[in-house]
Simulated assay, not measured.
Amino acid sequence: MNQPPRADWRFLLASPWNFLAMGCGSGLSPVAPGTAGSLFGWATWLLLQGVLPGWAWPPLLLAGFAGGVWICERAARALGLHDPAPLVWDEVVAMWLVLWAAQWGLNALTGGHGLLPWPLQLAGFALFRLFDAVKPGPVGWADRKLSGGLGIMLDDIVAAVLSLLGLAVGLLAWTFIDMWLHGIRVPT
């Protein structure tokens, strides 16, 4: 009987699609491959920030998502599993979305053009990992109800959107607390 391959270095290097689906090897982490893939996503976002103009991010995110549906479907089928832990391209693209959207939103609000501050990057990472691991509400629904590459990719995108909402609520609360501590009244 022919068994499906294992998600190991041989599988990783068997095709460029497996290499991408496994986050360039980050998905082979023996401990918390999803976290390793998210860290790889964060690191590549930092590298790409210095290279890509702002207008290039939306097409990159769309291509990363659409391509991810295909490569994750292909790799999961080859492994004979629904959503194998070593496939972390979904975490990579979701982290790109969290960090890019948070930076874009902050720059739009403040008129700034700098890199997203480290505490906000860390908060985005932590919120994404929380929502991806716990899979509350719509994240869990997408994980349970959608199959194939679309299901693999979409639950992480939903977790990214929840992370962005969490960042927005946190920043709003921080702003109001700061205003209250400094005796600044909210304009009515």
Results as ranks from 00 to 15, higher is better:
residue 3 Q to W: 12
residue 4 P to A: 01
residue 7 A to M: 04
residue 12 L to R: 01
residue 12 L to C: 07
residue 13 L to V: 01
residue 16 P to L: 00
residue 21 A to Q: 00
residue 22 M to V: 05
residue 25 G to T: 11
residue 25 G to D: 11
residue 27 G to N: 05
residue 31 V to C: 10
residue 43 A to K: 03
residue 48 L to P: 01
residue 55 W to V: 13
residue 57 W to P: 00
residue 59 P to M: 01
residue 61 L to G: 06
residue 63 A to P: 09
residue 63 A to S: 11
residue 65 F to I: 08
residue 69 V to T: 01
residue 72 C to H: 00
residue 74 R to G: 04
residue 74 R to M: 08
residue 76 A to Y: 06
residue 81 L to T: 11
residue 83 D to A: 09
residue 83 D to L: 11
residue 84 P to E: 13
residue 85 A to K: 14
residue 88 V to Y: 02
residue 90 D to F: 13
residue 92 V to H: 08
residue 94 A to E: 02
residue 95 M to D: 03
residue 97 L to M: 10
residue 101 A to D: 00
residue 109 L to F: 13
residue 111 G to N: 12
residue 112 G to D: 15
residue 113 H to T: 15
residue 114 G to P: 03
residue 115 L to D: 14
residue 119 P to Y: 15
residue 121 Q to T: 13
residue 122 L to G: 06
residue 124 G to C: 14
residue 129 R to A: 11
residue 132 D to W: 12
residue 135 K to V: 14
residue 137 G to R: 06
residue 138 P to I: 05
residue 141 W to I: 08
residue 141 W to A: 08
residue 142 A to K: 02
residue 144 R to D: 15
residue 144 R to S: 12
residue 149 G to Y: 01
residue 150 L to W: 13
residue 153 M to F: 08
residue 157 I to E: 06
residue 159 A to F: 07
residue 162 L to M: 13
residue 166 G to T: 10
residue 168 A to F: 15
residue 168 A to W: 11
residue 168 A to N: 06
residue 170 G to F: 12
residue 176 F to G: 02
residue 181 L to F: 12
residue 182 H to A: 08
residue 184 I to T: 10
residue 184 I to L: 14
residue 185 R to E: 09
residue 188 T to L: 15
